[in-house]
Protein backbone atom coordinates (compact mmCIF):
# COMPACT_ATOMS: atom_id res chain seq x y z
CA UNK A 1 0.00 0.00 0.00
CA UNK A 2 2.88 2.32 0.82
CA UNK A 3 4.42 1.56 -2.56
CA UNK A 4 1.08 2.25 -4.24
CA UNK A 5 0.76 5.61 -2.51
CA UNK A 6 4.35 6.49 -3.39
CA UNK A 7 3.67 5.62 -7.03
CA UNK A 8 0.51 7.71 -6.96
CA UNK A 9 2.43 10.65 -5.48
CA UNK A 10 5.04 10.30 -8.19
CA UNK A 11 2.33 10.20 -10.86
CA UNK A 12 0.61 13.23 -9.31
CA UNK A 13 3.82 15.26 -9.50
CA UNK A 14 4.74 14.02 -12.98
CA UNK A 15 1.44 14.93 -14.55
CA UNK A 16 1.64 18.37 -12.98
CA UNK A 17 4.87 18.85 -14.90
CA UNK A 18 3.11 18.18 -18.21
CA UNK A 19 1.84 21.21 -20.13
CA UNK A 20 -1.62 22.46 -19.28
CA UNK A 21 -3.93 21.89 -16.36
CA UNK A 22 -7.63 21.11 -15.88
CA UNK A 23 -8.43 24.68 -16.92
CA UNK A 24 -6.67 24.37 -20.30
CA UNK A 25 -8.41 21.03 -20.76
CA UNK A 26 -11.75 22.86 -20.78
CA UNK A 27 -11.19 23.13 -24.52
CA UNK A 28 -11.19 25.81 -27.17
CA UNK A 29 -13.30 28.90 -27.12
CA UNK A 30 -13.40 29.16 -23.34
CA UNK A 31 -12.57 32.71 -22.22
CA UNK A 32 -9.37 33.02 -20.23
CA UNK A 33 -11.38 34.53 -17.38
CA UNK A 34 -13.38 31.31 -17.10
CA UNK A 35 -10.16 29.29 -17.04
CA UNK A 36 -8.79 31.53 -14.30
CA UNK A 37 -11.96 31.13 -12.27
CA UNK A 38 -11.68 27.34 -12.61
CA UNK A 39 -8.07 27.47 -11.42
CA UNK A 40 -9.14 29.56 -8.45
CA UNK A 41 -12.01 27.21 -7.54
CA UNK A 42 -9.90 24.04 -7.72
CA UNK A 43 -6.67 25.61 -6.49
CA UNK A 44 -4.67 24.69 -9.59
CA UNK A 45 -3.11 28.12 -9.65
CA UNK A 46 -1.33 27.36 -6.37
CA UNK A 47 2.35 26.32 -6.29
CA UNK A 48 3.01 22.64 -6.90
CA UNK A 49 4.16 22.05 -3.33
CA UNK A 50 0.97 23.51 -1.91
CA UNK A 51 -1.13 21.35 -4.21
CA UNK A 52 0.91 18.29 -3.36
CA UNK A 53 0.58 18.93 0.38
CA UNK A 54 -3.17 19.33 -0.01
CA UNK A 55 -3.34 16.09 -1.98
CA UNK A 56 -1.28 14.13 0.57
CA UNK A 57 -3.46 15.40 3.43
CA UNK A 58 -6.59 14.33 1.60
CA UNK A 59 -5.13 10.93 0.75
CA UNK A 60 -4.29 10.32 4.38
CA UNK A 61 -7.97 10.90 5.15
CA UNK A 62 -8.90 8.42 2.42
CA UNK A 63 -10.18 11.23 0.21
CA UNK A 64 -9.08 10.74 -3.40
CA UNK A 65 -10.33 14.18 -4.33
CA UNK A 66 -12.64 15.55 -6.97
CA UNK A 67 -12.59 14.76 -10.66
CA UNK A 68 -12.51 18.02 -12.58
CA UNK A 69 -13.28 16.18 -15.81
CA UNK A 70 -16.31 14.27 -14.58
CA UNK A 71 -17.49 16.58 -11.81
CA UNK A 72 -17.75 13.89 -9.15
CA UNK A 73 -15.55 12.13 -6.64
CA UNK A 74 -12.43 10.64 -8.26
CA UNK A 75 -13.01 7.44 -6.30
CA UNK A 76 -16.47 7.09 -7.88
CA UNK A 77 -14.94 7.46 -11.33
CA UNK A 78 -12.45 4.67 -10.65
CA UNK A 79 -15.01 2.52 -8.85
CA UNK A 80 -17.24 2.64 -11.94
CA UNK A 81 -14.38 1.52 -14.16
CA UNK A 82 -13.00 -1.37 -12.07
CA UNK A 83 -15.89 -3.83 -12.63
CA UNK A 84 -15.81 -3.07 -16.36
CA UNK A 85 -12.12 -3.89 -16.54
CA UNK A 86 -12.51 -7.02 -14.47
CA UNK A 87 -15.34 -8.15 -16.73
CA UNK A 88 -13.06 -8.47 -19.73
CA UNK A 89 -9.71 -9.09 -18.07
CA UNK A 90 -10.66 -12.03 -15.84
CA UNK A 91 -12.37 -14.19 -18.47
CA UNK A 92 -9.83 -13.11 -21.06
CA UNK A 93 -6.81 -14.00 -18.96
CA UNK A 94 -8.38 -17.17 -17.64
CA UNK A 95 -8.95 -18.31 -21.18
CA UNK A 96 -5.42 -17.24 -22.03
CA UNK A 97 -4.02 -19.23 -19.12
CA UNK A 98 -5.93 -22.39 -20.00
CA UNK A 99 -5.39 -22.23 -23.75
CA UNK A 100 -1.86 -20.85 -23.57
CA UNK A 101 -0.80 -23.41 -21.01
CA UNK A 102 -2.30 -26.28 -22.99
CA UNK A 103 -0.74 -25.21 -26.28
CA UNK A 104 2.58 -24.33 -24.70
CA UNK A 105 2.72 -27.65 -22.84
CA UNK A 106 2.03 -29.59 -26.01
CA UNK A 107 4.71 -27.62 -27.82
CA UNK A 108 7.15 -28.20 -24.98
CA UNK A 109 6.58 -31.95 -25.14
CA UNK A 110 6.87 -32.08 -28.92
CA UNK A 111 9.47 -29.35 -29.22
CA UNK A 112 11.22 -29.34 -32.56
CA UNK A 113 8.44 -31.11 -34.42
CA UNK A 114 6.96 -29.57 -37.56
CA UNK A 115 3.71 -28.80 -35.77
CA UNK A 116 5.63 -27.14 -32.95
CA UNK A 117 7.54 -25.00 -35.41
CA UNK A 118 4.31 -24.03 -37.17
CA UNK A 119 2.62 -23.14 -33.89
CA UNK A 120 5.66 -21.20 -32.77
CA UNK A 121 5.53 -19.19 -35.98
CA UNK A 122 1.84 -18.40 -35.49
CA UNK A 123 2.44 -17.46 -31.86
CA UNK A 124 5.38 -15.29 -32.84
CA UNK A 125 3.34 -13.44 -35.46
CA UNK A 126 0.45 -12.91 -33.06
CA UNK A 127 2.88 -11.83 -30.35
CA UNK A 128 4.38 -9.27 -32.70
CA UNK A 129 1.00 -7.78 -33.56
CA UNK A 130 -0.02 -4.82 -31.45
CA UNK A 131 -3.09 -5.36 -29.33
CA UNK A 132 -5.04 -2.67 -31.15
CA UNK A 133 -4.51 -4.52 -34.42
CA UNK A 134 -5.93 -7.70 -32.93
CA UNK A 135 -8.87 -5.76 -31.52
CA UNK A 136 -9.51 -3.94 -34.80
CA UNK A 137 -9.36 -7.19 -36.75
CA UNK A 138 -11.88 -8.82 -34.44
CA UNK A 139 -14.12 -5.79 -34.64
CA UNK A 140 -13.95 -5.67 -38.43
CA UNK A 141 -14.54 -9.39 -38.87
CA UNK A 142 -17.24 -10.07 -36.32
CA UNK A 143 -19.00 -6.76 -36.04
CA UNK A 144 -18.74 -5.19 -39.49
CA UNK A 145 -18.18 -7.97 -42.08
CA UNK A 146 -20.15 -10.61 -40.19
CA UNK A 147 -22.26 -8.63 -37.74
CA UNK A 148 -22.46 -11.30 -35.10
CA UNK A 149 -21.52 -9.14 -32.16
CA UNK A 150 -22.09 -5.54 -31.18
CA UNK A 151 -19.40 -3.05 -32.10
CA UNK A 152 -18.83 -1.83 -28.58
CA UNK A 153 -20.13 -0.89 -25.19
CA UNK A 154 -20.69 -2.91 -22.05
CA UNK A 155 -24.35 -3.49 -22.90
CA UNK A 156 -26.64 -2.31 -25.67
CA UNK A 157 -28.30 1.05 -25.38
CA UNK A 158 -31.71 -0.59 -24.94
CA UNK A 159 -30.42 -2.97 -22.28
CA UNK A 160 -32.67 -1.74 -19.48
CA UNK A 161 -35.75 -2.52 -21.56
CA UNK A 162 -34.81 -6.16 -22.18
CA UNK A 163 -36.19 -9.14 -20.28
CA UNK A 164 -33.90 -10.60 -17.57
CA UNK A 165 -32.85 -13.50 -19.82
CA UNK A 166 -32.21 -11.20 -22.76
CA UNK A 167 -30.18 -8.94 -20.50
CA UNK A 168 -27.82 -11.80 -19.70
CA UNK A 169 -27.47 -12.65 -23.38
CA UNK A 170 -26.92 -9.02 -24.25
CA UNK A 171 -24.17 -8.69 -21.67
CA UNK A 172 -22.47 -11.88 -22.88
CA UNK A 173 -22.60 -10.78 -26.51
CA UNK A 174 -20.86 -7.53 -25.62
CA UNK A 175 -18.22 -9.42 -23.65
CA UNK A 176 -17.15 -11.75 -26.43
CA UNK A 177 -15.01 -9.56 -28.67
CA UNK A 178 -13.12 -7.54 -26.04
CA UNK A 179 -12.51 -10.67 -23.94
CA UNK A 180 -11.34 -12.51 -27.02
CA UNK A 181 -8.90 -9.70 -27.79
CA UNK A 182 -7.52 -9.93 -24.25
CA UNK A 183 -7.43 -13.70 -24.48
CA UNK A 184 -5.55 -13.74 -27.79
CA UNK A 185 -3.03 -11.25 -26.53
CA UNK A 186 -2.61 -13.22 -23.28
CA UNK A 187 -2.54 -16.64 -24.91
CA UNK A 188 0.45 -15.96 -27.13
CA UNK A 189 2.30 -14.52 -24.15
CA UNK A 190 1.57 -17.60 -22.03
CA UNK A 191 2.32 -19.98 -24.89
CA UNK A 192 5.84 -18.68 -25.34
CA UNK A 193 6.70 -18.95 -21.65
CA UNK A 194 4.94 -22.26 -21.12
CA UNK A 195 6.61 -23.89 -24.10
CA UNK A 196 10.09 -22.95 -22.97
CA UNK A 197 9.35 -23.89 -19.39
CA UNK A 198 7.90 -27.26 -20.36
CA UNK A 199 10.83 -27.94 -22.63
CA UNK A 200 13.20 -27.22 -19.74
CA UNK A 201 11.14 -29.43 -17.41
CA UNK A 202 11.20 -32.30 -19.87
CA UNK A 203 14.99 -32.19 -19.77
CA UNK A 204 15.07 -32.47 -15.97
CA UNK A 205 16.59 -35.64 -14.44
CA UNK A 206 13.38 -36.54 -12.61
CA UNK A 207 11.52 -36.74 -15.93
CA UNK A 208 14.18 -39.00 -17.42
CA UNK A 209 14.02 -41.16 -14.31
CA UNK A 210 10.24 -41.32 -14.44
CA UNK A 211 10.32 -42.31 -18.09
CA UNK A 212 13.02 -44.90 -17.41
CA UNK A 213 11.02 -46.46 -14.60
CA UNK A 214 8.14 -46.96 -17.00
CA UNK A 215 5.62 -44.59 -15.41
CA UNK A 216 2.61 -43.92 -17.66
CA UNK A 217 3.32 -41.01 -20.02
CA UNK A 218 0.40 -38.89 -18.83
CA UNK A 219 1.71 -39.05 -15.27
CA UNK A 220 5.16 -38.07 -16.40
CA UNK A 221 3.81 -35.14 -18.39
CA UNK A 222 1.62 -34.08 -15.46
CA UNK A 223 4.64 -34.00 -13.19
CA UNK A 224 6.68 -32.06 -15.73
CA UNK A 225 3.78 -29.68 -16.30
CA UNK A 226 3.51 -28.91 -12.59
CA UNK A 227 7.20 -28.22 -12.45
CA UNK A 228 6.95 -25.97 -15.50
CA UNK A 229 4.19 -23.82 -14.04
CA UNK A 230 6.31 -21.56 -11.84
CA UNK A 231 7.54 -19.15 -14.54
CA UNK A 232 4.08 -19.12 -16.14
CA UNK A 233 2.41 -18.18 -12.87
CA UNK A 234 5.02 -15.52 -12.19
CA UNK A 235 4.43 -14.03 -15.61
CA UNK A 236 0.67 -14.26 -15.07
CA UNK A 237 1.06 -12.21 -11.91
CA UNK A 238 2.55 -9.44 -14.01
CA UNK A 239 0.00 -9.79 -16.78
CA UNK A 240 -3.06 -9.27 -14.57
CA UNK A 241 -2.34 -5.75 -13.27
CA UNK A 242 -0.92 -4.77 -16.65
CA UNK A 243 -4.13 -5.85 -18.37
CA UNK A 244 -6.28 -3.97 -15.88
CA UNK A 245 -4.77 -0.59 -16.76
CA UNK A 246 -2.87 -1.27 -19.93
CA UNK A 247 -5.59 -2.25 -22.36
CA UNK A 248 -6.25 1.30 -23.45
CA UNK A 249 -6.52 0.50 -27.14
CA UNK A 250 -8.73 -2.53 -26.66
CA UNK A 251 -11.05 -0.50 -24.44
CA UNK A 252 -11.03 2.41 -26.84
CA UNK A 253 -11.80 0.27 -29.89
CA UNK A 254 -14.64 -1.57 -28.15
CA UNK A 255 -15.93 1.57 -26.38
CA UNK A 256 -15.38 -0.21 -23.09
CA UNK A 257 -15.22 2.21 -20.16
CA UNK A 258 -12.57 0.35 -18.19
CA UNK A 259 -9.66 1.51 -16.07
CA UNK A 260 -7.24 1.91 -18.97
CA UNK A 261 -9.54 4.21 -20.88
CA UNK A 262 -10.37 6.09 -17.68
CA UNK A 263 -6.68 6.68 -17.01
CA UNK A 264 -6.04 7.69 -20.62
CA UNK A 265 -8.92 10.19 -20.61
CA UNK A 266 -7.87 11.52 -17.21
CA UNK A 267 -4.34 12.17 -18.47
CA UNK A 268 -5.68 14.02 -21.51
CA UNK A 269 -8.05 16.04 -19.34
CA UNK A 270 -5.31 16.69 -16.77
CA UNK A 271 -7.66 15.19 -14.21
CA UNK A 272 -4.93 14.85 -11.59
CA UNK A 273 -6.97 13.16 -8.89
CA UNK A 274 -8.32 10.46 -11.18
CA UNK A 275 -4.81 9.74 -12.47
CA UNK A 276 -3.54 9.35 -8.93
CA UNK A 277 -6.51 7.17 -7.95
CA UNK A 278 -5.86 4.90 -10.95
CA UNK A 279 -2.22 4.51 -9.92
CA UNK A 280 -3.25 3.58 -6.38
CA UNK A 281 -5.60 0.96 -7.79
CA UNK A 282 -2.78 -0.31 -9.99
CA UNK A 283 -0.54 -0.64 -6.94
CA UNK A 284 -3.19 -2.52 -4.99
CA UNK A 285 -3.75 -4.83 -7.95
CA UNK A 286 -0.05 -5.59 -8.16
CA UNK A 287 0.02 -6.39 -4.45
CA UNK A 288 -3.07 -8.59 -4.65
CA UNK A 289 -1.93 -10.43 -7.76
CA UNK A 290 1.49 -11.01 -6.19
CA UNK A 291 -0.13 -12.65 -3.16
CA UNK A 292 -2.39 -14.77 -5.36
CA UNK A 293 0.51 -15.85 -7.56
CA UNK A 294 2.59 -16.74 -4.49
CA UNK A 295 -0.23 -18.96 -3.26
CA UNK A 296 -0.59 -20.58 -6.67
CA UNK A 297 3.17 -21.14 -6.92
CA UNK A 298 3.17 -22.82 -3.53
CA UNK A 299 0.30 -25.02 -4.63
CA UNK A 300 2.17 -25.93 -7.80
CA UNK A 301 5.44 -26.64 -6.01
CA UNK A 302 5.09 -27.59 -2.31
CA UNK A 303 8.86 -27.37 -1.90
CA UNK A 304 8.46 -23.59 -1.85
CA UNK A 305 6.38 -23.87 1.33
CA UNK A 306 8.99 -26.10 2.94
CA UNK A 307 11.76 -23.69 1.97
CA UNK A 308 9.82 -20.79 3.39
CA UNK A 309 9.16 -22.68 6.63
CA UNK A 310 12.80 -23.66 6.96
CA UNK A 311 13.86 -20.04 6.46
CA UNK A 312 11.38 -18.90 9.09
CA UNK A 313 12.62 -21.57 11.50
CA UNK A 314 16.25 -20.57 10.96
CA UNK A 315 15.39 -16.94 11.60
CA UNK A 316 13.59 -17.96 14.81
CA UNK A 317 16.61 -19.98 15.99
CA UNK A 318 18.98 -17.08 15.27
CA UNK A 319 16.81 -14.64 17.18
Amino acid sequence: MVAALAAAAFAFVCIQLAPGDPATALGEGVPEAVRERARAVYGYGDPLLVQFGRWVQAMLRGDFGYSTGQHRAALDVVADAIPNSLAIVLPGLLLALVAGSAIGTWQGVYAGSRRDRALSLVAFVLYALPEFFIALTLLTLFSVVWPLFPSGGVVSDMHVYLSPAAKVTDRLRHLVLPSLAVALFGTVTVVRVQRQSMWDAMAQPFVRTALATGLPLHRVYLGAWRASLLPVLTMFGVLLPFAMLGLVFVEQIFAWPGLGLTLFNAINARDYNVVAACIVVQGVLIAVSTVIVDLLREAADPRLVETAMQSAAQRAVRS
Binding site: S151, G152, S156, M158, Q252, A255, P257, L261
Partner: peptide, 21 residues
Protein backbone atom coordinates in the same frame (compact mmCIF):
# COMPACT_ATOMS: atom_id res chain seq x y z
CA UNK B 1 -33.33 10.06 -26.84
CA UNK B 2 -30.20 8.16 -25.88
CA UNK B 3 -26.77 9.72 -26.14
CA UNK B 4 -24.50 6.74 -26.58
CA UNK B 5 -20.94 7.53 -25.53
CA UNK B 6 -18.04 6.37 -27.67
CA UNK B 7 -14.43 7.01 -26.68
CA UNK B 8 -13.45 8.60 -29.98
CA UNK B 9 -14.74 9.52 -33.40
CA UNK B 10 -13.68 6.21 -34.97
CA UNK B 11 -15.64 4.15 -32.47
CA UNK B 12 -18.61 6.47 -32.91
CA UNK B 13 -18.54 6.03 -36.69
CA UNK B 14 -18.39 2.23 -36.34
CA UNK B 15 -21.45 2.34 -34.15
CA UNK B 16 -23.32 4.48 -36.64
CA UNK B 17 -22.49 2.30 -39.62
CA UNK B 18 -23.29 -0.86 -37.65
CA UNK B 19 -26.85 0.42 -37.23
CA UNK B 20 -26.52 0.70 -33.45
CA UNK B 21 -26.92 4.48 -33.55
Amino acid sequence: VIWSIAPDFGAAAVKLFAGEA
